[in-house]
Design a protein around this nucleic acid. Structure first.
Lengths: 226, 226
DNA sequence: CAGTGATCGATACACTGTATCGACTCGTAC
DNA sequence: GTACGAGTCGATACAGTGTATCGATCACTG
């Protein structure tokens, strides 16, 4: 068929410009807005106006995308302070802060080794601030603080989600968790637990986090100044 | 059609007897053998000789199955010892041990509040052993140890998996992580980190875990005996 | 200008969790 | 003894997933 009667090719749109940063940003926005389980390659590609397979030019798997997301958040974690204790506390608070802004981070933290440039940069800052600490003690100290933060943040976010799930409509709450614990404790099988839950002061999340962190830092201090 | 020429109904098999315990056991075996991501309701139902939808008579969602799996493992976590410190240490070691036997536990720990009977029983044991501790201090103390354990175990399992992934064939290892860090450190952007990784003593996982735990327990001791 | 590699996205595959619904069984009321 | 109602079981279906494959198209090199 001659060109004259052949229609123009269907206006093939210029392929949307793409790079890892754009992809990761879109993924993070999705995760922030709708949770991690709502992040799919199809949706991410969708908001970028692109076919799903296009992403595989920039990442090799979804796992890699998640790794990139975590590393991107590490860019926001900039511990500051004077001396090792300040910096470790700052690291902990900043990580917790990041997880508050990106709840999905709690699902990913500690799930895979963090070796991205921003994670390494954070590590560098921290380790550099531990210059006056015995070299052999640096790794276990940083590791322990990281471990504590990961676990504490996970628990905190998990609790927050559980509350939100029931709290969304008061009915559900009334019909589920509170009374469940009531009934369970009423069996008398967990007297000590029941006593603590009923009679002890209920700390908020901030205080709980800080107390544990202080304990850990105290213990570290005792150990490295020995 | 008369019965005489109508074939027997196709030997409808007696429905396999089922209960939550059987389901959970099958799921745990799957997860132990092939990892958590290989656990699907179809497969679990399959090994039980049952259609997938049958499971929904016993659980309301896959999440609930995972909750049951975690609680089942909590039955193996029986902290023992004299005094609060022994018991907290025992709790930590037992949890870590459980995660070594069921690596998928690392993916689930801290992901959702643990309110199953076995988890509560573990909590009861621990809290009971903290009888001589100020009531208001019990919750944050237990929470901090739990947080540390969750994070430490996660990191440990994550590292183990990463090693295994590359270690399965030596080629991959040589081509991926080791040299990656080499090259990255060679850029000179992470001098302090590089120094630690190169010059510091490399502790094994057991020691790393114990050092952090000791720090935390030391800090707790200082705080509650104040 | 021909050919060659890279890039793009449509299609396809195997699989997921779970809603729906018809077929069937069984205990009970008449 | 029979009709009915409730409940159980599993086949089918649906919407969605990550990713392999591959033909079409593009930009660039000889």
């Amino acid at each position: 068929m001659l060109v004259w009667e052949r229609p123009e090719p269907p206006n093939r749109p210029v392929p949307a410009p793409l790079d890892r940063e754009r992809i990761v940003r879109a993924a993070i926005e999705s995760a922030d807005a709708e949770g991690l389980e709502a992040v799919s390659l199809r949706k991410v590609a969708g908001v970028l106006g692109v076919g799903p397979m296009r992403l595989y030019g920039y990442i090799a798997s979804k796992e890699e995308l998640l790794d990139l997301m975590v590393d991107a958040v590490h860019a926001e974690i900039r511990p500051v302070g004077d001396g090792w204790r300040d910096v470790l506390r700052s690291l902990a608070e900043a990580t917790r802060q990041a997880a508050h802004e990106h709840e999905w981070l709690a699902d990913l933290l500690g799930g895979r080794p963090q070796l991205g440039p921003h994670a390494l940069a954070t590590g560098e800052t921290v380790v550099a601030a531990l210059g006056d600490v015995d070299l052999d003690a640096v790794m276990p100290v940083v590791a322990s603080v990281n471990a504590y933060v990961i676990g504490a943040v996970r628990r905190e976010i998990a609790e927050r989600r559980a509350e939100r799930a029931t709290g969304l409509d008061e009915k559900r709450w009334q019909a589920s968790l509170g009374p469940y614990l009531e009934r369970t404790f009423a069996t008398g099988r967990f007297p000590a637990l029941a006593a603590v839950v009923r009679d002890a002061a209920h700390l908020d999340a901030d205080d709980t986090f800080r107390i544990g962190l202080d304990c850990l830092l105290d213990g570290i201090e005792a150990r490295i100044s020995r």
